[in-house]
Nucleic acid binder design. Structure first.
Lengths: 211, 211
DNA sequence: CTCAAAACAGGGTGGTCATCCTGTTTGATA
DNA sequence: TATCAAACAGGATGACCACCCTGTTTTGAG
């Protein structure tokens, strides 16, 4: 009997990206060998090399297609959908913390993981990752500006708030990954809110300020 | 003529640690080969293996002796020496930003760099790194508590503030490394201060809330 | 001085890894 | 149906790389 083969370039490419995304997240770029990825994806060397001529090309595709999408889905979209930027930030922190606590382990933020390992290694990596960070911060800052046009967020500097929110999240995820405990995410969120508009006292103030 | 050799175990160990610390910081753990380290340190394979039987043992020594010391010197000591925790945090942010801007490039926080690459790879690495994070946070939290005994820092939660400060710094350094621009450090510091005791609006608000 | 242990030298080794190369199969187009 | 580029297969290759092993030199204790 003859063995059949069905050409499915898109599906094969997608399977490779799936496996690579997961392995880069769990083991990092250097610790992920193409041999392991090929075995995990059920792909031969020829097929891998056809779609991604080098390991760098594969990583660049993971960054631009998967990591960027992950930031969009877990951060930008929820923040934009929230009533205000601050509520969006809180919702994301809490959603991520809850998800991590449920799954029982912390693999860290995919963007930060790759940023640390690859930013200094290659300028193509670095600029691709920097673009994602910039888009993340800008989305939050724009949302703050929208809130201000709606009459909220008095004197908050949008860019400062966005930088702080992204930094606090990234750093909290670093610690959560290292301690394998998502609690620090909640701790940082409460720290942010205690100092800004989060606490019950602040909520009282906001109601006063709104009319 | 005979070649002379002077046994200097401490010096040789120190030279290896110096080179390894620098290379782990600049290239990361996996991208640093023992061959490169040997060449850079002027050390033979036998000597390296004598002092550090495995690469992991070398990295563990770097973490426990060098990274921990770096956190102590650049963060804990200045914060403890400052009049208040907040002033200490501000001083460190500004000192690091100034140093980075002067040297023209950003290699990132050594603790965070290694934490991202090694936390999931090996539990010995992970716990050693987690200990450093914990000591860092606790030093800041203790300083806040001392400030409160001196009558300052009204209702600030020490652990929350410490977690937020460390997270904001770590995350800001991630972005600074990725964008090769230390400006985000200052941005995050201003964000922290605007939201806490810094901005004029916040000072006004806080006064109202206090009764 | 003796001598054992520590300190160091340097080549070897098995394994892994990314990439390449030659060939075969598939599918769209004409 | 003829044709050709894209898609895929799978082994070859050469370059590392971490670790080990055998041997030599230095050092300090007794």
């Amino acid at each position: 009997m003859r063995k059949k083969r069905t050409n499915d370039p898109d599906g094969m490419r997608r399977r490779v990206l799936d496996v690579a995304e997961g392995s880069f997240q769990a083991r990092g770029y250097h610790a992920s060998s193409l041999g392991d990825l090929m075995a995990a994806a059920g792909v031969t060397g020829g097929a891998l090399h056809h779609h991604f001529p080098t390991k760098k090309a594969l990583a660049l595709a993971v960054i631009e297609e998967r990591v960027a999408a992950a930031v969009q889905e877990t951060w930008i979209d929820p923040v934009l959908a929230a009533p205000t930027a601050r509520q969006g930030v809180r919702a994301v922190f809490e959603a991520v913390a809850a998800e991590l606590e449920q799954q029982g382990y912390v693999r860290g933020c995919p963007l930060n993981n790759l940023a640390h390992e690859l930013s200094l290694a290659d300028d193509d990596f670095r600029s691709a990752l920097a673009r994602i960070f910039a888009g993340w911060r800008q989305a939050i800052a724009d949302k703050i500006r929208a809130d201000q046009l709606d009459g909220g967020e008095g004197g908050t500097d949008p860019d400062r708030f966005a930088a702080l929110a992204v930094a606090a999240y990234s750093g909290a995820m670093s610690m959560a990954k290292t301690s394998q405990d998502a609690g620090v995410l909640r701790e940082c969120l409460r720290g942010l809110e205690e100092l800004s508009s989060g606490g019950p006292a602040a909520r009282r103030r906001r109601r006063v300020l709104l009319r």
